[in-house]
Nucleic acid binder design. Structure first.
Lengths: 208, 208
DNA sequence: CGCGACCAAACGAACGATCGTTCGTTTGTG
DNA sequence: CACAAACGAACGATCGTTCGTTTGGTCGCG
């Protein structure tokens, strides 16, 4: 699964040694649940069955963990853009692929996605700026697809690309808040319902 | 403006005495910016030009400030529901009023709204439960309006009220993240663009 | 096969800093 | 003079982090 699993013994058993990956994953879990400032190194140690001081065998400090977790989240979302912009069909299809990909990332990596979205402001300034730039690029991918779809005549006339990108991402990002793995809805169903809302709105055809 | 302004001297001047309202407002500002756990009582004191310990002349503790700020946010949003559900026109109009009212609250009370949305999880358990219940009721107001609009035939057929309420609130709540008072868009314009998105989606009429 | 050397991982005490909070004192205004 | 507001030192707790020590598994070598 991960590149460092070679070093990992049985994993989970008492006395089992933890890898850096385990530490980062647990950090993502706690940062997502309690927030960065609401999580102490001792909390994190307890989550992993060790002392807080023991974490320093794996990472240099708490900030490094935040950088690492958010960096992973950013990579996941970046991957979606890369995938969606490869094929060259109608721009509307690209937009739909972006939406489905986003839902997939949130469902599969909810802790990293949550930390990415909610805790980025606590990053060291240099890292924060990188993440802000990355988020701008992500939004730009949506704007670009919207503008092209507009030129192709697929969208309602006079639509504002910037604002529309924000609205679509609003629906997508909120998934982080309400999605529960225990829910009965499958990820694909969620993406489908979201796309139906984004594409057609809620009003009946003969009333608008 | 507020009910306790009677006690407030010139306000702002050096040596001016602060009211409890000033303290709660400043707390809202800092909690919204840096998060509850990212704000210390000494930070808050500095924001008001006094020592952290001096705050205890106005409030009992830090938690009380969080409860107070979030309580105010909750009241603002509750007021919107009260207003929107008073008139008895078409359910779609009620829905539109809810949307416009929500935008208005976020624009006018962004710090309280931000704290309400992002920091509620750090409330003392008893208060947290109240806020959760209040949020459920808020969502229920949307669901109810959607269901009635559906019965009135105003919405696309087979729409899921629960999911639709979530989507609409997703667009609305995200305003908290991107709205800047310095932006050129007027609140009414924002609400109008949001409603256009929610009502009609993005696809051109002849492509869906 | 057994055994000692090695080494990463975890421990646990301790550091200075900062946290929320308390309380006796000072200040300034009505 | 009275009283609310702010001060400022101090409290115990907890924070992130350091560091010398202990542990337990792996590997080379006889």
């Amino acid at each position: 699964m991960s590149s460092t699993d070679v070093d990992a013994p049985v994993a989970g058993g008492p006395g089992a040694t933890r890898t850096r990956d385990d530490v980062v994953a647990a950090a993502g879990r706690l940062f997502a649940q309690r927030g960065f400032h609401g999580t102490s190194m001792r909390d994190l140690g307890e989550e992993l069955g060790m002392l807080g001081s023991s974490l320093y065998s794996h990472v240099q400090g708490k900030n490094e963990l935040l950088v690492e977790v958010i960096g992973r989240g950013a990579e996941f979302f970046n991957g979606v853009v890369t995938d969606a912009t490869m094929a060259d069909g109608p721009a509307v299809d690209e937009l739909r692929h972006l939406v489905y990909g986003h839902v997939h990332v949130v469902v599969e990596h909810i802790d990293e996605a949550r930390t990415f979205l909610f805790e980025s402001r606590f990053l060291p300034e240099a890292d924060r700026l990188k993440i802000v730039a990355m988020r701008d690029a992500y939004e730009e991918a949506y704007r670009s697809a919207i503008e092209r779809a507009e030129e192709e005549g697929s969208l309602v006339q006079g639509i504002d690309a910037r604002m529309t990108a924000i609205f679509i991402l609003s629906v997508l990002n909120a998934l982080i808040r309400w999605y529960r793995p225990s829910g009965k809805r499958q990820p694909a169903d969620i993406a489908e319902e979201m796309w139906a809302f984004i594409a057609g709105g809620i009003l009946a055809g003969d009333t608008r």
